[in-house]
Design a protein around this nucleic acid. Sequence first.
DNA 1: AAAGTGCTCAACCGCCGGAAT
DNA 2: GATTCCGGCGGTTGAGCACTT
Length: 289
Amino acid sequence: MGRRPCCSKVGLNRGSWSAQEDKILADYIKAHGEGKWRDLPKRAGLKRCGKSCRLRWLNYLRPDIKRGNISPDEEDLIIRLHKLLGNRWSLIAGRLPGRTDNEIKNYWNTKLGKEVKAIPEQLNGEKDHDKLKGRKSRAGLKTEAPKELGEQAYPVIRTKAVRCTKVYIPQHQDDRMAGQNLEPCSNEQAPTSILEDVDPANFFVDFDMQDLLLEVQADDVSRVCMNEPPQDSNGVHGQEGSNKMLSPCSDLSRHFHGAMLEEWRDGDGLQPSLASELNALASLLDLEE
DNA sequence: AAAGTGCTCAACCGCCGGAAT
DNA sequence: GATTCCGGCGGTTGAGCACTT
């Protein structure tokens, strides 16, 4: 049974948006808010597909969009997140305030993907968290990378690219991250573990464990990554003392390392590559303990 | 100056999951 | 429970521009 197409596509404008169309769409959304995309074009008086309107708004017209000039820090973060999440652009974009999944995807496909592919694999098998922690930039990766390793720069964990909306991530946590422009939290304001607010018995029921691990690890490991001391304008790192690991790591490792990881790894269904990734992450998470 | 090539990125497409009916 | 609707996702395309030959 076929699905109804999102719109008839007959008599609709296609291709690039005109300034006038942009204005109509932006004005309409300012007045009526987002949502109801299918009916929006008709109500707004646009000869566009609802999907097209949504895309135009999300990727271009939204007021909080940051455009162009992806900073080295953002670049680094994209690479790290891509390593953990694979091509899950929306998740990656969610960690980069003002950036859209489309922009990151394009950036990766046109630039980072090629660069990273050119970087010989270094992380593969590397479990030394000191090395991981000490890695500050993509430039560093380039210079340090051994040459004998494989074609792919690192073992990307590729899960099926679907959303996992049931993962519990407190909204305030995301808001804080965004509000602080990805600055590290202090120990005082370290967020509670994302697992503490829910009954584990319920928590594990509804979603795929691998997806859960990926979501959680991405969240916390990126926070670990971002906990590097801030650089000043000369690229000089801040004081050592400010570089403390966050409690979520401990929280996370409490839930996800050791016996549990062993069990998951040895159980059925866990890819060997994922298992080694988990080991590396477990090492990373053990840093505090 | 013209032709060829490569790159960027906005936009489109098909598919999926969750909600609604 | 089945079907439909809706919003969202990642993959792909192609127009426009820059650069090279």
